[in-house]
Computed example of a mutant assay.
Amino acid sequence: MFALENLDGHEIIGTSDKKIGSVLDFWSWSYSNISNPFIRGYLAEYVVYKTLQTQPDQFQFYDGYHLNRNEMDQDDLVFSYQGSKIRVQIKSTDTLCQKQEFSCSPSRGFVAGDNKNQPEKSFNSDIYVFAQVRLDNDDGQRINNILSVWNSRENEGFYKTPEEKAEYHRIQHSVRSDVMNLNNWSFYIASSSEVSKLAEGGKIAVETLENNRAVHKADINSLCRVVGRVCFLTIPNRTMDNRDKATS
């Protein structure tokens, strides 16, 4: 798939005679809750992509493929490593989540050469990157406490005092700052064959990844090196199929 050219945010949303906002306004409205699990997942893909881009001699992305995010693609990233096509899936969680685990299930991958899905479910990407963001547990507890108080005032129109609103905004600012600080991110990188052994019931616990010697851990500074190592170890185990032969 060849990606669209990116918008720059200044495009107008409205009619010929009335503006209701801009694309930048829409982005701010829809994505400001950056700690939301769905948006954090998009951010994780962006972080891994932009980090690997810093080593273009090692990770060669196909022309135009990742200019913007491809929502329906089987793989989150696709690049060439030492002449071999590498398909990547990226998962994310944070330490405030009740269950410290990643969702990871087999699927029927799309075969571009045949223009159809595979008949059997499997772990189709070559490597998997699991990203965990460390957040302040106290911030999480404070947010829950405030929301509990507000929800108890349903009959009063969910009344909020100015002090409560100020505290809530302060904590949310702290959480969002922690999410955007890449020193708070840890990454677990594993091959498809290893992931297929670890995923039980479509879930993999963080503790399982942490304690498995076949899973490689990285921080933001070592991410390129570790991803490269897993790619190197994965290539000899791959078989050429229609997806490799297909042109991106």
Rank of each mutant, 00 (worst) to 15 (best):
N145S: 15
C104T: 14
Y31V: 11
A218V: 05
V133S: 05
V23T: 04
S16A: 14
Q53F: 05
K85A: 01
C104S: 14
S16T: 11
N115F: 11
T15D: 13
E5M: 11
T95G: 04
A44C: 02
N68S: 13
I86L: 01
I39S: 06
G157E: 07
A218L: 02
V215Y: 04
Q60I: 10
N68W: 00
V129L: 00
S174T: 13
D25N: 11
C104K: 09
Q98F: 10
R176W: 14
A44K: 01
C97G: 09
N184I: 04
M72C: 05
F158I: 05
N183F: 04
Y128R: 05
N184C: 03
S248T: 13
D94Y: 01
K19P: 07
V149K: 07
T161H: 09
D139F: 03
E210I: 12
V149Q: 10
D94A: 03
L52G: 08
F158Y: 12
E167N: 11
V215L: 00
R176V: 06
S107P: 00
R170L: 12
Q74N: 15
R229G: 00
V133H: 03
C97V: 09
N137D: 14
S80N: 15
S32T: 14
N33C: 13
G140K: 01
D63T: 13
N242Y: 14
E120T: 12
S35R: 02
Y42R: 12
V78F: 01
A190K: 05
L198C: 00
D219W: 01
K18F: 12
I146A: 02
P236Q: 08
A112M: 09
T239N: 08
L7S: 08
R134H: 14
G140S: 02
E200C: 13
D136A: 09
T95C: 04
P162A: 10
A246F: 10
D244K: 03
G9H: 03
P56C: 04
R153S: 06
Y128L: 07
D25P: 05
I143P: 08
Q58F: 08
G201T: 09
N242Q: 13
S92V: 05
S186A: 11
Q172G: 04
R40N: 07
R40K: 08
V47T: 01
T54Y: 00
S248Y: 13
N145C: 12
W29L: 14
K116G: 02
I20G: 06
V230I: 11
D114N: 13
A3E: 07
D114Q: 15
E156I: 10
D244V: 05
I90C: 03
I127V: 06
I12P: 02
F130M: 01
V23A: 02
G14E: 08
F158H: 11
Y49L: 15
L24W: 12
S107G: 09
N181F: 03
G14P: 10
V129N: 00
L77R: 08
N68R: 09
F158Q: 06
L52I: 10
A112P: 10
N115P: 02
Q58I: 14
S222H: 08
D94W: 01
F123K: 05
R69N: 07
S22A: 06
V230H: 05
K116L: 12
L182R: 04
D241S: 12
F232H: 14
V78S: 09
G41M: 02
N70F: 06
N181S: 07
E45Y: 02
